[in-house]
Amino acid sequence: MSTLLDVENLWVRFPTRNGVFDAVRGISFTLGRERLGIVGESGSGKSMTGRSILRLIRAPGVVEADHISLEGQDLLQLSEKEMREVRGKRISMVMQDPKFSLNPVMTIGDQIMEAYRLHSKASKSEAYAKSIEMLEAVSIRDPERVMRAYPHEMSGGMGQRIMIAMMLIPNPEILIADEPTSALDVSVQRQVLDIMDKLVRERGMGLIFISHDLNLVADFCDRVLIMYAGRVVEVCEADKLHEAKHPYTRGLLNSLPRLDAPRDHLEVLQRDPAWSEAPSVSGRS
């Protein structure tokens, strides 16, 4: 399998009053044309990992790594201007809540067309046609009307499909999806995931899927990294997630209430300080 992205020894640090806080502590992984899941609790560093690939960590936060290579090119060596060529065009990102990632005072059409024209020399009418096509690809009925609409006129599920359309229109090689469905209802969740899955497959893209939902990741991804306190504690094939060995992963799985196995008390995760001390497991394949 060809490697799209290769991350080696990634650290994300934030200086605070009480010394330096390490949000991500030396993780390594590779991404091919596959769906890679990153799961963990809040504060485990999963979103920071996603953001640091695009160098979206703001100062005073610091990203350090031996390398973050996109097809052999080290992203950490690029200037800010060169980095803008990467963002959106080669790697793009879908965030959690469409309410906060769409511009509220621009029509959806203008936003999608802007995303497309920023990275290609297409004319306005070409961009319009392409946008319509893309909205149809994410199963939006009546795309002409949606192009004229403003974000507040859209439901959460539609907003997230629009975000996906916007992020995929420059045809990037890698899509980073940070909790793309957590703000959506279960019934809409499935629909949005199916659309994302179909597009990622058809285009042979690499997908990094960041989520706190173990079952969703087990269902949807090929390979999963489990993060705890800034480190990767376990890597496994997604369909074998339920056979995971690490006590943290087991604890998370057992703390979920289950319809088919009722009990009076749920299992409570007992945290072991040794987990955060153990070195990171490599996510290279």
């Binding site: 703390s255 209430p257 409570v268 995760l269």
Partner: peptide, 9 residues
Amino acid sequence: DVSVQAEIL
């Protein structure tokens, strides 16, 4: 988080 959810439930 799910582990905290278990405690609260």
